[in-house]
Amino acid sequence: MAAQEVEVAVSGDVLVVAERFGGEWTEVTFELLAAGREVAQGLGGTLSVAALGRGTTDQVKALGAADVVLYADAPELEAFVPEVHLRVLEAVVRSRQPRAVLVANTSTGMDLAAPLAARLGVPCVAYCRRVWVEDGTVVAHSQVYGGKLVAEVALEGPGVLALVAGSYPAEAGRGTGSPAVERIPLPALEGLHSRFLRLIEPEAADVDITREEILVAVGRGIGDRENLGLAEELAEALGGAVCASRPLVDNGWLPKNRQVGKSGLTVKPKLYLAAGISGAPEHLEGMRSAELIVAINTDPKAPIFDVAHYGVVGDVLEILPALTEEVRRRKGEG
């Protein structure tokens, strides 16, 4: 079935695509609702939320920040399967014709936003950090080039926007209104080419980095695998644990359960010491709410310094051992 472009009538309505995992709406769903409310207000339209899953019937109330909850509750929608969810979502968008569709730029949302835009023949804006309305035009800030630059783009007509998690306060999207609730008629789900087989539990972790108060995080700047010991020694001196950014985990230097960021875990420790991490948006997403962020990097322009409270421009291979020694010395004094 090839994509078919349609003339989409220009309403001022906004459709948020709720994200669901483990029988719950995820945090980013409420962030999307917070963003969606601002856009709907700017356009003078209504805010709807597409809530697809199984067991959703009893959970529509949690989406009370929207004016309309369009829900589907079916066994076929229990696990996220890109083809299935896209098919249902496409049917919803074609029938409702919203001006803006807001999707999470997450591991599941990324499988919906761009294909949906291609099928509808409307533009897609990836990596959005902010979305607002100016004189009836939807405007977005998209972080491109690993967060080094921000593109301000304008959408004259309808479009799909993928919003980076952590960009809006979830609290603002946890409304307790009484939205109109409508059950979506499911499109035909025969002739599917993909299916869910099983969920793979994360490997049992010797350390749960989401519970640690002190994290020493290492990135590419650590250079060689042998240098990981420097981070481990500091973590041990501080009574914390070592975690890492994606490239080190992809290299197999550290297990997946130590990865912080978009495709890893979100952490909120009391101290996050980022060593040799440049601060790609996908990493910042997982750690920007840490209470105290200290960053060490050779590049003074690295984006990590924009979220860090304290920064050191220097070589982690020199700074880490100096820190370990100093921590041990002070502890010895105490």
């Binding site: 936003a113 291609a118 990836a126």
Partner: peptide
Amino acid sequence: LDGQVGMLLAGYLGLPHVG
């Protein structure tokens, strides 16, 4: 900026996709 090549391609071709 305007979406991921693979996912856009899947949408155009109407092929099953996983990202």
